[in-house]
């Protein structure tokens, strides 16, 4: 075999090898979907998919068992919405400060702290929630327990804030200087330029950042399991105890009989969670791509 032929073949082989490595992620995603389907599937026939629309989640009972996902979905939605209500304004303001206003040395000082915040394990944040946030909420609102949706939301916003800050900051920084200059040259002040030109131009990126933040929050388990009180009731009160989809899986998976109806219902929760985060990610990527903000 000639030298060039040999080179050609190694080239091809290397290409295949690398492509194989790169495709693993695609493969894993597909396998996870498949596996979830396989475990959740039988539920559709017995006891029937309609059981998931029940208004209660009582998976273990001496009378009738209920597998309604409503309370869990509402729990996740409530906690996520509250978390975003807190997170979005704070994150966007911080991003504006870091991207547009802070001096270089202030920026160098702030950014590592935000990154550290992102890397705190959620169990540790859970401790913080139990010992500090929950008692605060309990006394502030005069409740019998501090383990509420709001408590979980506050902790989750601590986790989402760093993500949303750094992605929003990227979006703000990528607004061309020429636009800011045009605004300044028309006599606009620095603040007018930020709020009337830079922020609107960065909006698609910020929206995508928020969606990725939501994805992070919805999928978060540990902290919410520890501080939201774990009662699966259908409510929209921030001060009620709730239970999210993730917390349900984490709390019940250990004790559920393998292959039982309850077991299958838990896999349905997982499937729905995966679909939600998947959809959020895809939409966020689309938005970023459409407005040319993809890195």
């Amino acid at each position: 075999m000639s030298r060039s032929r040999k080179l050609f073949i190694t080239d091809k082989l290397m290409r295949l090898l690398l492509m194989g490595a790169a495709s693993t992620s695609v493969l894993v995603v597909c396998l996870i979907f498949l596996f979830l389907f396989k475990e959740a599937g039988p539920f559709v026939l017995n006891p029937g998919i309609g059981k998931l629309l029940d208004s209660q989640w009582i998976p273990v009972s001496f009378q009738e068992e209920h597998f309604g996902l409503g309370p869990l979905l509402s729990g996740s939605a409530l906690v996520t919405a509250l978390a975003m209500l807190v997170t979005v304004p704070i994150s966007v303001l911080v991003a504006i400060y870091i991207a547009e206003i802070a001096r270089p040395d202030e920026r160098e000082f702030l950014k590592p702290f935000i990154e550290i915040l992102a890397s705190i394990p959620s169990v540790v944040l859970g401790f913080f929630g139990l010992l500090v946030v929950a008692p605060l909420i309990k006394t502030a609102f005069g409740l019998s327990t501090g383990l509420t949706a709001l408590t979980g939301a506050l902790l989750l916003s601590l986790m989402a804030i760093p993500t949303i800050i750094s992605l929003s900051e990227d979006a703000l920084v990528s607004v061309p200087y020429s636009l800011k200059n045009a605004s300044l040259a028309l006599g606009a002040s620095h603040l007018q330029t930020i709020f009337l030109v830079t922020l609107p131009a960065a909006l698609p990126g910020i929206v995508a950042a928020v969606m990725l933040g939501i994805g992070r929050v919805i999928g978060e388990t540990m902290a919410v399991l520890m501080v939201t009180g774990n009662s699966a009731i259908l409510t929209f009160s921030p001060l009620a105890s709730v239970r999210t989809m993730t917390a349900t899986i984490a709390a019940e998976m250990g004790e559920v009989p393998f292959g039982s109806v309850h077991y299958q219902a838990l896999f349905w929760i997982g499937l729905i969670l995966l679909v939600i985060t998947f959809a959020l990610n895809i939409v966020a990527q689309r938005v970023l791509k459409k407005y040319g903000m993809m890195k």
Binding site: P176, S178, L179, N181, A182, S183, L184, A185, L186, G187, A188, S189, V197, P200, A201
Partner: peptide, 21 residues
């Protein structure tokens, strides 16, 4: 007052830079 100055002295840049509005 830089705002007043820039109201009096307008500027057009090398690369056209309309706002995305």
């Amino acid at each position: 007052d830089v705002v007043e100055l820039r109201k009096k002295v307008g500027m057009v840049f090398q690369k056209s830079n309309p706002f995305p509005k």
